[in-house]
Design a protein around this nucleic acid. Sequence first.
DNA 1: GGGCTTCAGATGACGTTGTCACCTGAGCTA
DNA 2: TAGCTCAGGTGACAACGTCATCTGAAGCCC
Lengths: 233, 233
Amino acid sequence: MMGAMVTRAESAALTRRALLDAAAELLDLGGPEAVTLREVGARAGVTRGAPYRHFMGKDGLLDAVATESWVRIGDQVHALRTDPALTASEKLCGALRALIGVGRDQPYRYQLLFKRPGHGPGERGEGLDRVMRQLCGPEGDPAAAVRASVRFQDEFLAIVAALVGERNARHYGALLLAGAHGIADMELGGHLGEDTWHTTADELVDTLVRLVADTGETTWQRPRPVDGRLPAP
Amino acid sequence: MMGAMVTRAESAALTRRALLDAAAELLDLGGPEAVTLREVGARAGVTRGAPYRHFMGKDGLLDAVATESWVRIGDQVHALRTDPALTASEKLCGALRALIGVGRDQPYRYQLLFKRPGHGPGERGEGLDRVMRQLCGPEGDPAAAVRASVRFQDEFLAIVAALVGERNARHYGALLLAGAHGIADMELGGHLGEDTWHTTADELVDTLVRLVADTGETTWQRPRPVDGRLPAP
DNA sequence: GGGCTTCAGATGACGTTGTCACCTGAGCTA
DNA sequence: TAGCTCAGGTGACAACGTCATCTGAAGCCC
């Protein structure tokens, strides 16, 4: 009987998808060290060398996973922003909790989101194929992850702006995002034990939003540096 | 001529110190992946197997480095807390900036501070020497790092309590620490670009302290969970 | 359809790393 | 001095990332 006909491009796309899924699964299971190109290939039904046709090595593969995660979170925040049934404060809480949710459900993928972008390709190993890959096809571009995170930032900033005004949006947006990230990162690192701090990550997010919402309406004045040092607040 | 006489214990302690220094140096240079037991041993004047006499493998060595960093930061915060010339607000800003300073000066060591504690020793590999090591000597105890960080937490909490009162100290302390950590981690990840957010890490810390200092004096009431979910703030 | 090109994937190989069991020799103790 | 202890050295192994090279089928042009 006839098997499903697939063009070569379709087959390659299928493999690429399978590689990404396998990498994400292994990442969630045991962190970056558990993401073995050999195991990734095996789970995708190919061999260890195949991933190099689609990504720039292991780092490129993980970059691609991070990009997909950023895109997904960006979609979530976009949905929140355009939901007419929510108040600005609710949208903000939702966005921050969505981020923390990723940290809870997929800790390793979350850590990947805020990892420093790849140290720039081609630091060592200037093989011929490597040059070809950079010019032509295989993905794993750190810049793609950055672009995807910028998409998230834009959506997030729009929500913040609706709450504290356009003038304050970037400053307080950075504070809210950094605060939520710190809460999420400390929680998944086990440094936010309720025994120690008598509080939870969710309560901290609520307090953070409340503090900003209460006083963020007043325009934030950027202090001028005095001989390179900021004056005491 | 007579070389310096050293007992065996002194020699071992010296080696241990050299191993720690070499590991920290390599860590600062190129991250955990650059910390090679072979290179650590070489820089300490011993061979690749020597570190196993003092630490439980690579993870144990890095845990010990983290412990030392926590101790050092704890000392800094202690000095701040007991400095009679500083106001509570200045002490708090100083403590948070000390933390961020580590993130700036030694990014990889900073990331080690907030890493999740080791996944528990003895997960695999139940060799005889391994059992001996667990019973007798070699360090690298994740719990030691935790204890050292608790020391920091106590000092930090004392400073926060002086600012917002004993009742609020833990909640706002967690918020301040998580906020500062988020700021530091995003900065060293390159996710706090001034082009994007029109602000800097230092300004964010100041705002964070200001927000807490302004409204933190009023006692924070812990909301009761309603069917497992917190009410909207 | 036949021959050529392209390219996803397979394969062999290499250097590096963490880790271990085992060995050695110098300090310590009885 | 004889025996023990233990810090450190050594050989070995499996696993990993990475690359050059090979293979075979899909695509394409005449």
